[in-house]
Design a protein around this nucleic acid. Structure first.
Length: 795
DNA sequence: TAATTCGCTAGACCGA
DNA sequence: TCGGTCTAGCGAA
C-alpha cells in the first residue's frame, strides 16, 4: 500500500453528549485504488516537565478536563528530563486550548512538544514514510520500500485581465489546460476552431464543470500547478462560486482548503497532493539543487528544460480573446504552461519522493518547506527514537538576542595574484558534517566537564566537546553520512540510465541536502537545536584544517595559492608532479582524525587571480581556471553575475579564454577594442545591454535609489505592475544626468538608445581591466591600442 | 515566514 | 566636484 497523505479530522463519538475526537486518516493507494484508513488508537498529546509528578497530576486533574478533552495523564520517562507527564487529549482543539492554563500551573515547569501538528505527530511516532509503501496492520505500519507509480495531472488557467490584475469577481477564466502522461487538452469557454487539442464550450460555467469532472475522473495522486497557491487554485475556487458552482475537486467533493504557510497560503486538496511547482522550485533553488533567480515559467523552462517558451503578456491575452484573433495561439500557450509544469515536476519527482521519505513529510509539506523545516522534521523523528524531548521553539526575544551575536566563519586566504600554472585544487569532502561527526559537536556535548575531553577535543574557539557519549546531532549526522557513502558505492555498479541509478542517486542527493543543512541550522536563530558555540566550533575547526593543509603543502615545496572555507589551491613547482600531489593528499588523510577527508578536486593547467578594484590586494572569491581539456572554470567574476550587462560578461569570458586557453593577451586586447568600437557605433543590440537586478523590498522603503529602483518606479508610472521579488531588466540610456535617471526598463527602450560611454567605462572596462592589468596592460592600452605582448615573456 | 559567514562591487548620498 | 561612507545586491563556500 502506498502512503499518499496523513491528515486528521474530527468525528463525533457521542452524538448525544456532543462529544468528538480527532482521528488520524491515512490516504493510501492499493491496486490503483485510493482509500482512507482511520487510525483509532492514536490521540493528540504533549508533555509537561514538572517539579513534582504527583502534585502536578493533581493540579491538572483540577482544571476543566472536560473542556480541554483531557483523556489521560501518564508518567513517562525521557532521557533528557527528570519528571515528565504526558497529557493525552481527545481533540486537537482541546489540546490547543489547554496550553495556556496548564503551563501556568504551579508544579508545571514547561510544556514540551505542544506545537507539533497532530498529523506530523503521527508520522513521527509511527515512522511513516509518505510516498513509500507500507504494510498497514491494526497497530503497526511497516515500511516496505517500493517504486511508487504516481499519477500526476497538471492544470493551468488563462484569465481576462483588462488593464488590471485579474479579479475573480469580475474577470472570467478563458481557457484551462489539463495535462497528464497521456493527454494534453485545453478547455475553452469560447469556440476555438482548427485546434485538435481544444475542447470548446458554450460558456465559462460549462467549461469549469468539465474541468471539475475531468479532475474527478482522472483522480490523480498529484495535482500540479505553477503558482497554484498564489493564483490558479483560489481563482478557480472564487470563480466557481461566482458562477454558482462548487469547485469540488476533492475526493470527498470538498473544495480546496487554504492552509496558512507563513505569510502566504497553500491550497490543500482532499485526496491528492497539490504540488505547486513554483514553490517546489524556490525550495530547490535554496537547497542549491537548481540555479534559478527568476521564477517566471519562461525563465525556468529555459534553465531547467533547456527549451524556449514564448511569453504572452496578460494584456495581449485579453486582446486576443476580445478580438477573437489568434485564439489557437492563446490555447497553445495555455497548454504549454501545463506541459512545462508537468515536465519540471517529473524531472524532480524522484528527489522529492526521497526527501519525503527521509524527513517524513508529505510532498505537500516538503515542496513548501524551508531548509530548517526539513532538518527539524528529521530531528523530530530521531528525538522520538532516542526517547528525548524535543526542545521548544525560541521566543521572539530569544531570537533577537541570538541574532545580535554572530560568530566567525570559514577561512578565506588572500590569493597570490597573477597567472599561475599547474594548479591542484584540493577540498575537504563534506567539511561541516565530517567536523561535526569527528569532534562530536552537538548542543548537549559542549563543555561536558571531563578533563580528558577538554584535553583531547577542544575546538580552536575554546569550547570542548564530550568524547565519552555520542551527541544527538553527530549521531544523527553520522548515520546519514554512512548511509550516503554506502549508496554512493552502490551507484558505481549501476548503469547510469537505469531506474535504479536514478532512485539511488536521488536518495544520496536527498541525504547530501540534509547533511549540508545541519551546520546552518545549528547557527540559525530560530532553531530548536540552536548552539552558537557549536556552530562557531565547527567553523573554528574548519579554519584550522584548511590552514593545516596549506602549511603542510608549503613544507613540501608546493605553493599555497588560495583557499576558501574547505579548499586549498596549490601550485605544483618544477620538479614536482601530479603524483606528488596524490601522495600529499594520502599523507594528509593519514594524519586527519575521524572521518575527515581531503580530496583531490582536480588539476588545472593555468589559473588567474586578480587584484581588487579598491586596492592592490588580490581579490578573494574571484578566479578563473582552465583544466587540461580546455574547460574554463570562472568563479566570482562578473561573467557569473546576473547584475552585469551581457556585453561585459561575454567580453570578459572571451578575454579570459584568450589568456588562459591560448596564452594570447594581444588577442584579448583586440577583443576589447572591437567591443568598444561596436558600442561606440551604436550597433550593440538591446539584449546585450540589459542589466538584471532583483527588487527585494517595497519600492517605497529604499533609502538609496539605485538604477534598478529608478527604472522600476518609472515603469510603474507607466502602468506596469512590479512586486517584491521582481527582477528588473534595465538599460542605461542617454536621457538624464545620474545613472539612475538614465536607467529605463528594457521594454521601454528602443534599439540603439543606449549610453555607449556608460557601457564602455562602467561595464566592459571594469570587467576586463583587472585581468589585463595582470598581463601588463593599462586601461589606456585597451582604449587606444598600444603595446603587443605575448604570454611568452611570463612563462 | 526564516540554514550560515565572508567578500566584492556599484552607485547614491552627504558633507566639505 | 571631491572623497569617504553607506545601502544594496549578488556570489562563494
Amino acid at each position: 500500500m502506498l502512503v499518499l497523505d496523513v491528515n486528521y479530522k474530527n468525528i463525533a463519538i457521542d452524538e448525544k453528549e456532543n462529544k468528538s475526537r480527532s482521528i488520524i486518516t491515512i490516504l493510501a493507494k492499493e491496486n490503483s485504488k485510493k482509500k482512507e484508513i482511520q487510525w483509532e488508537d492514536f490521540w493528540p498529546y504533549y508533555y509537561a516537565v514538572v517539579s513534582d509528578k504527583k502534585q502536578a497530576k493533581k493540579e491538572i486533574e483540577n482544571v476543566n478536563t472536560e473542556e480541554y478533552s483531557i483523556k489521560k495523564i501518564e508518567e513517562v520517562k525521557k532521557d533528557n528530563a527528570e519528571k515528565v507527564l504526558k497529557l493525552v487529549f481527545a481533540t486537537t482543539q482541546g489540546l490547543a486550548k489547554s496550553r495556556e492554563e496548564i503551563k501556568e500551573l504551579p508544579s508545571v515547569i514547561e510544556l514540551r512538544e505542544h506545537d507539533i501538528p497532530f498529523a506530523k505527530r503521527f508520522l513521527i511516532d509511527y515512522a511513516v514514510e509518505p510516498l513509500n509503501c507500507a504494510k498497514i496492520t491494526k497497530d503497526k505500519i511497516e515500511k516496505i520500500d517500493c517504486e511508487p507509480k504516481l499519477k500526476m495531472l497538471a492544470i493551468d488557467i488563462e484569465t481576462l485581465a483588462p488593464e488590471r490584475f485579474p479579479d475573480p469577481k469580475k474577470d472570467q477564466i478563458l481557457t484551462v489546460s489539463i495535462v497528464d502522461e497521456k493527454e494534453a487538452t485545453v478547455l475553452s469557454s469560447k469556440e476555438i476552431k482548427n485546434a485538435k487539442f481544444v475542447k470548446s464550450f458554450k460558456d465559462e460555467k460549462s467549461m469549469l464543470t468539465e474541468l471539475i469532472n475531468t479532475i474527478k475522473k482522472k483522480n490523480p495522486d498529484i495535482l500540479l500547478t505553477y503558482n497554484g497557491d498564489g493564483f490558479d487554485i483560489p481563482y478557480l475556487r472564487e470563480r466557481c462560486r461566482e458562477l454558482g458552482i462548487k469547485f469540488a475537486i476533492g475526493i470527498d467533493d470538498s473544495e480546496p482548503k487554504a492552509v496558512t504557510k507563513g505569510l502566504t497560503k497553500a491550497f490543500r486538496i482532499e485526496g491528492m497532493q497539490h504540488i505547486d511547482v513554483y514553490a517546489m522550485l524556490t525550495l530547490l533553488a535554496k537547497l542549491a539543487v537548481v540555479n534559478l533567480v527568476k521564477f517566471d515559467l519562461e525563465s525556468v523552462v529555459e534553465v531547467i528544460l533547456n527549451e524556449k517558451k514564448e511569453k504572452i503578456p496578460s494584456k495581449s491575452i485579453t486582446e486576443m480573446w476580445q478580438n477573437g484573433s489568434s485564439l489557437e495561439k492563446l490555447a497553445r500557450y495555455n497548454l504549454e504552461d501545463s506541459i512545462a509544469t508537468y515536465k519540471i515536476a517529473k524531472k524532480y519527482l524522484t528527489l522529492i519522493i526521497e526527501l519525503c521519505r527521509l524527513v517524513k513529510l508529505t510532498p505537500f509539506d516538503v515542496v513548501r518547506a524551508s531548509a530548517s523545516t526539513l532538518v527539524e522534521s528529521l530531528l523530530f523523528r530521531k528525538a522520538f527514537e532516542k526517547n528525548i524531548l524535543i526542545p521548544n521553539k525560541p521566543s521572539e526575544e530569544e531570537v533577537s538576542t541570538r541574532i545580535e551575536t554572530t560568530y566567525e566563519g570559514g577561512y578565506v586566504k588572500e590569493p597570490k595574484k597573477g597567472l599561475h600554472e599547474r594548479i591542484a585544487v584540493l577540498d575537504f569532502s563534506s567539511l561541516h558534517p565530517t567536523i561535526i561527526i569527528t569532534h562530536n559537536i552537538s548542543p548537549e556535548t559542549i563543555n561536558c566537564g571531563h578533563k580528558e575531553c577538554k584535553e583531547k577535543n577542544t575546538a580552536p574557539n575554546g569550547v570542548y566537546f564530550c568524547t565519552k557519549k555520542k551527541g544527538f546531532v553527530p549521531e544523527t549526522i553520522e548515520e546519514l553520512f554512512f548511509r550516503r557513502m554506502k549508496i554512493k558505492k552502490m551507484l558505481k555498479e549501476k548503469s547510469k540510465d537505469s531506474k535504479e541509478y536514478e532512485v539511488l542517486n536521488a536518495r544520496q542527493h536527498a541525504l547530501k541536502i540534509i547533511l549540508n543543512s545541519f551546520y546552518g541550522y545549528l547557527g540559525y536563530a530560530r532553531s530548536r537545536w540552536y548552539s552558537r558555540e557549536a556552530a562557531s566550533a565547527i567553523t573554528a575547526f574548519s579554519r584550522k584544517y584548511v590552514k593545516f593543509v596549506g602549511q603542510e603543502a608549503e613544507k613540501l615545496g608546493f605553493e599555497f595559492l588560495y583557499g576558501d572555507t574547505d579548499s586549498a589551491f596549490l601550485a605544483i613547482p618544477e620538479g614536482k608532479s601530479k603524483q606528488d600531489i596524490i601522495k600529499f593528499v594520502e599523507n594528509i588523510n593519514a594524519k586527519l582524525p575521524g572521518v575527515m577527508q581531503l580530496e583531490l578536486e582536480g588539476f588545472y593547467k593555468r589559473g588567474i587571480f586578480v587584484t581588487k578594484k579598491s586596492d592592490e590586494k588580490a581579490a578573494k572569491k574571484r578566479y578563473a581556471l582552465i583544466d587540461e581539456e580546455g574547460n574554463l572554470k570562472i568563479v566570482g567574476f562578473e561573467y557569473v553575475r546576473r547584475d552585469w550587462a551581457p556585453i561585459a560578461k561575454k567580453t570578459q569570458r572571451k578575454v579570459i579564454e584568450a589568456i588562459l586557453k591560448e596564452g594570447n593577451p594581444a588577442k584579448a586586447v583586440k577583443i576589447v577594442r572591437n567591443v568598444i568600437n561596436k558600442l561606440k557605433s551604436g550597433a550593440v543590440k538591446k539584449e546585450d545591454l540589459v542589466i538584471l537586478t532583483q527588487i527585494k523590498k517595497s519600492l517605497s522603503s529604499y533609502e538609496a535609489i539605485g538604477p534598478s529602483v529608478a527604472a522600476a518606479k518609472k515603469a510603474i508610472a507607466r502602468g506596469k505592475h512590479i512586486g517584491i521579488g521582481s527582477v528588473i531588466g534595465y538599460i542605461i540610456t542617454r536621457r538624464g544626468k545620474s545613472i539612475s535617471e538614465r536607467a529605463e526598463m528594457e521594454e521601454f527602450v528602443k534599439e540603439g538608445d543606449y549610453d555607449a560611454e556608460y557601457y564602455i567605462n562602467n561595464q566592459v572596462i571594469p570587467a576586463v581591466i583587472k585581468i589585463m592589468n595582470e598581463l601588463g596592460y593599462s586601461k589606456d592600452d585597451l582604449i587606444h591600442g598600444g603595446k603587443q605582448k605575448t604570454l611568452g615573456s611570463y612563462w
